[in-house]
Write a protein that binds this DNA or RNA. Sequence first.
RNA 1: GUCCCCAUCGUCUAGAGGCCUAGGACACCUCCCUUUCACGGAGGCGACCGGGGUUCGAAUCCCCGUGGGGACGCCA
Length: 466
Amino acid sequence: MTIVTRFPPSPTGMLHIGGARTALFSWLYARRHGGRFILRIEDTDLERSTPEAVQVILEGMAWLGLEWDEGPYFQTQRFDRYREVVAQMLASGHAYHCYCSRETLEEMRAGQMARKEKPRYDGRCRQLAAPPAAAPAPVVRLCNPTEGAVVVRDAIHGGVVFENAELDDLIIARSDGTPTYNLCVVVDDIDMGVTHVIRGDDHLNNTPRQMNILAALGAPAPVYAHVPMILGPDGRKLSKRHGAVSVLEYRQEGYLPEALLNYLVRLGWSHGDQEIFSIEQMIAAFDLDALSKSAAAVNPDKLLWLNQHYIKTAPVERLLAPFAEQLRALDIDPATGPALAGIIECQRERAKTLKEMALASRFFFEAPTVFEEKAAAKNLGAEARPVLLALRAALQALPEWTATAVHGLVEGQAAALGLGLGKVAQPLRVAVSGGGVSPPIDATLALLGPTRTLPRIDHALAWIGT
RNA sequence: GUCCCCAUCGUCUAGAGGCCUAGGACACCUCCCUUUCACGGAGGCGACCGGGGUUCGAAUCCCCGUGGGGACGCCA
């Protein structure tokens, strides 16, 4: 049997990390078993769905590299099919027209709440012989079994029992004729041959209803796996207040998709003590039975750590494009400085994000005009003057401008001046970078080259002089 | 309110009755390395929600409680 999974976002907002993780799990499961992964856009809510949101979802999926084998399907393009199924259910007696007005329903709910009962439709239209006079356009409801129980066989939770008596006759088609979520999912999953439904456990309660529709249609149930929700860093429900919840925001913030994927895969899933997973390793190791049952809070620090790990270990070429993207976001033209590869090479161990790396690399492209106050106060005092003078002279005479040569030069000058390395390297660092923090001074100067370095020392000297 | 789900360090988790003096990771603290910042290395702090059972033995199984979450829409 070919494994078929799907990711069915509704285009009403951005692709957030919770959705991304569900997509990842579904994608991994399909890949792991050589199956197919389907992308389906659930846009039956005409009011709230937007083409922009569809675009954002597609972009997010593409950035993460979660390529789908089929789709994207749009439910709005399958309305004929849903109508056909609804008609069939009506004909077979598995569904019926309900003429209750919204007001009636509201009263019913209020009464039940007041009596501390579970609010649900009482099925009063089930036995209607004929439509009432002057009735509003009806909705179509599922004829839910009134007895017995539905057992959801869940790969994560085991068997979960729901009494049919707890369920009511849910609406499968609105009064305007459009189908609702529970009907569409079931029909699509049947038609698309979905074998494994991996989704958030907020859907666990919907599952018995969907299984009853499935039964009415005479279709077998897929394997369900209800994964726990993702919580914000504060342990509360994920919301916009927690910062970057949209996947594309992580891109803007300088995260690598492999880092986000690695972070996400370990949220609710584990493989022994392993923390670092390449895409290939995830695919090889992923399994439903290692998914956890409890909700997980996001830990921004750990994501940062993983991102830094991938920045440190990725091939430099892999970082070129996203790093350039970050520079441009800061209005820096990547072509106006030293080779990007060189910069990345010496910055990668001191940046947790590519954005941070870009910020720290600005001086490679733009000569500092002002100096960081504290760094200047500490390292660009009058005593730095002879040091910079000596350094300048020696650098100008340097036959070959390489990191090794600069390294030897700095050490030599320190010895000659009878000073510790810090007393020599720090003023130089502040002079060329504008601050007290930079990659090793030898590598920094090697990248800057004499044409950028010498004038900067002059500028610092002039600044000290005033 | 009713139904459903969940419960190991601050966080992510390992753990499928004895291997647990409860392991790893992030964060935090200390030390080492060091021209800054980092990287790296070595240590440290730190948890089985509570109560009953079952068992020779329970973090692991059962029950109750407590806490958290979800569902109860002509949203998905």
